[in-house]
């Protein structure tokens, strides 16, 4: 079943005072199946973050549309958009984006509170998720009291607590050391194994090698896609490094 569809996505930015127009995305088409773990790989400036922002409904495309689970983003009223995002999408960002006014517990619960969930229900969801992510002992700490990896796991918990249809991740390992990165990506794979659909944007072949399919993007266009199949992660990683160096003039990063 197709969960997410990007249809002819175009995003152009115009310079100040109607100067030179700059095209960040140029007719991007792709589909994501239910339960797929898709990585979008590209160098900086390739338009991958723009793409993710469109998929996240944080930005509006100049042309084209995004369809999630049969629902077109264009058909959603501006005022309903925030609620839609809250109920269907989960986000993980490069710089965690946790609120420092909240404890880890409250950061995770934020989307549920906004959805007006019952307090008992919150507890029921929080405890297993937190123990799975190794956050049980940190629940009452503040974001600035814990490490980067722990902060990013908190952000994952916040994204996952609503059981979103789609988990979006923008360079989730960008600010992490290699051990925390591997740990986080393992968590992603686990979620994926249990049926969670994930779209992750990254410039790192290592991060992308955890996915089941990689889309290469350059200058706002999708170049190609590579499926992992039954290949072990190591081999897939080597294939990705080769592909990216030949496709993108060494624009991709091995780490």
């Amino acid at each position: 079943m197709v969960l997410l569809q990007a249809v002819d996505l175009v995003k152009t930015y115009s310079g100040r005072l109607g100067g030179r127009r700059y095209s960040a995305l140029d007719k991007v088409n792709f589909q994501v199946e239910q339960g797929e773990f898709t990585a979008v790989m590209g160098a900086s400036g390739s338009g991958k973050t723009t793409l993710l922002n469109l998929l996240a409904s944080l930005d509006k495309p100049s042309q084209g549309d995004v369809i999630l689970n049969g629902q077109s983003f264009r058909s959603i009223d501006e005022r309903r958009l925030a609620a839609f995002r809250r109920q269907n999408l989960g986000f993980v960002f490069q710089d965690y984006n946790l609120l420092d006014t909240f404890t880890v517990r409250d950061n995770i619960l934020l989307p549920l509170v906004l959805n007006r969930a019952a307090v008992e229900d919150m507890e029921k969801r929080l405890i297993p998720l937190a123990s799975r992510l190794g956050l049980e002992s940190l629940l009452d700490k503040f974001p600035y009291e814990i490490s980067g990896g722990e902060q990013q796991r908190t952000a994952v918990a916040r994204a996952m607590i609503t059981n979103p249809k789609l988990l979006l991740a923008d360079e989730p390992t960008g600010a992490l050391d290699s051990r925390s990165s591997a740990n986080l990506l393992d968590i992603f794979s686990e979620f994926n194994a249990q049926g969670q659909t994930i779209v992750m944007v990254t410039h790192s072949a290592f991060a992308a090698s955890f996915s089941s399919r990689v889309l290469f993007i350059q200058d706002g266009r999708l170049l190609t896609e590579i499926y992992r199949g039954d290949e072990p992660r190591r081999a897939f990683f080597d294939r990705l490094v080769n592909a990216s160096s030949s496709l993108m003039d060494g624009g991709a990063n091995v780490g």
Partner: peptide, 15 residues
Amino acid sequence: RRFVIMQQVGMDDQA
């Protein structure tokens, strides 16, 4: 900063 994060988590501008 908080403003931006809350929007991303799914709160509308007005709120």
